[in-house]
Amino acid sequence: MDLILTPNITDPDGFYARLIAAHDGLSDEESAALNARLILVLANQIGNAAVLEQALALAQVGK
């Protein structure tokens, strides 16, 4: 199984708006904590260690 690199989000604009709205009114620390929780939830959804490794590597390249 490989990391999906083609568009895969249903209603990308709706998702993005919901993501930003989730941070409304939060301090920087609260936002970082929300992101951390969200990443862990999504990682659990993915499950597969190889895919998670590819995702981590991809995100690190962009830093």
């Binding site: 895969n8 930003i20 941070h23 939060l26 991809l58």
Partner: peptide, 22 residues
């Protein structure tokens, strides 16, 4: 945080098609 996400989308979109719909 909105700015951080926006720029993350732009950074990823340069190399990866998946981020472009965002």
């Amino acid at each position: 945080i909105s700015h951080t996400f926006r720029n993350a989308v732009l950074q990823l979109a340069e190399k990866h098609a998946f981020a472009r719909p965002l």
